[in-house]
Design a protein around this nucleic acid. Structure first.
Lengths: 230, 230
DNA sequence: AATTTAATTGACTGACAATTTAATTTGCAA
DNA sequence: TTGCAAATTAAATTGTCAGTCAATTAAATT
């Protein structure tokens, strides 16, 4: 028996608006149509993937016609460009800066960074999904920029910090300096993107972003602290 | 200047084969057409995503017509089913067995499990990409199957193991039992999927899957072992 | 040999998505 | 007030994709 399709967001009833420029009403969301379209697109893209989201769906959700999307953005590709440029990049860049600021006190820096990261991500719930998809996607818009601009300084900074700490005997020497950043992301961005899944498997309310923060910091700072059974 | 689109896999020139059942040639790949189609589909799906890969592309790559895909699989959905059934399930079943074998010695079990996981993943490089792409997003074809079948037993087993170990004082009590599996995946599957990225940033050969294994185990078993600067 | 079964393509269909064009309506500046 | 620019839709266009079907060729079976 085929698995019932996980019913994609139900389409709101089609609305009728008269042709032509609408009277300037001060209804909510009506003030900046373009920004509103970006919001709606961002939400749907992160939920269903870019390719799987037709412009017509975005349009319906925003109570406009697909033609308006073309009026504002020119094409679907350019809509994605605009999203990356105007929504993803700033956050991604902010994150990079946060890491680059890491002071000499590694423990404090780590706590601050993980905290800030998780805060930022849960304030922008669409970010992890879209970021992962765009970055991991061979043809992804963000990927190029990440590889060329954002990641290298951060990655090298982290490597240096780890190397120095190891040289001074202040850090587990088995940690691979070049891999710590990847681990950091895998322990934060990835779990947030996967949140709907583990929420479905452990349906309880007490599994918050804060649990995740404590868990990740515990893992990083002390590991599992395994002791063999007596 | 816009980044040049990292040209998606170039389409091989369309081939001409006579209509009708072909003479049995012993050319490579010609022996089991069905299996070959599965291979090609798997590769493309993991590179571009399932929704973004038209049957016509799979067909062109395999030097056949789309109609043949329907002949063998009936529909695109059923092609995905076949892939899951015949390629993914065996892998995850093998992993599940590995976990089930986990003896009372948690440290050894963890080492064995992470080792087996990484080995499996790097022997099947398409897995991490495909898994992330299709599992992580709402409309993903594999997501339902994972949530309903594969994940729950494993997730609950891991939670139990952690809880028991914590109750007996054999494990860091700050670890959240329900989140350890997610962390485990974030530390293994994600880095492998992101491999092309960190390879681009640290272009050296000595960063192997084995480095990753040691790094991950170090992190899990002992954490960073940070000491503040004196 | 004759007949059935398997494998394969070419041509076709229906749905739907992206994009274009031509109205239409309103705001605003001269 | 008149006229141009902005914002919006309706309708048409074009393209692509999944899926169907009949025709064709070769293999297997009788």
């Amino acid at each position: 028996m085929p698995i019932p399709p996980p019913s994609p967001p139900p389409a709101p009833p089609p609305i009728r608006r008269r042709r032509g420029r609408p009277a300037t009403s001060t209804g909510p969301g009506r003030d900046d149509a373009r920004a509103h379209l970006l919001d709606v697109a961002l939400k749907l893209f992160s939920e269903q993937g870019i390719a799987a989201t037709p412009l017509s769906l975005i349009a319906r959700r925003a109570r406009v016609t697909p033609a308006l999307l073309h009026y504002y953005f020119g094409s679907k590709d350019k809509l994605v460009d605009a999203l990356v440029e105007e929504r993803l990049q700033p956050l991604s860049a902010a994150l990079g800066r946060r890491l680059a600021e890491a002071g000499p006190n590694l423990r404090g820096a780590l706590e601050a960074f993980v905290g800030a990261l998780l805060e930022l991500l849960s304030a922008n719930p669409w970010f992890p999904q879209l970021w992962l998809r765009e970055v991991l996607n061979e043809g992804g818009q963000l990927r190029q920029r990440l590889i060329e601009r954002v990641a290298p300084p951060v990655a090298h900074r982290v490597r240096e910090l780890v190397q120095r700490a190891q040289a001074e005997g202040r850090m587990n020497p088995d940690i691979e300096p070049r891999l710590l950043l990847v681990s950091l992301i895998g322990l934060t961005v990835f779990p947030l993107a996967a949140q709907p899944i583990w929420r479905a498997i452990f349906p309880s309310d007490d599994l918050t972003t804060d649990s995740l923060r404590r868990h990740v910091l515990a893992l990083l700072l002390r590991g599992l602290e395994l002791t063999d059974a007596h």
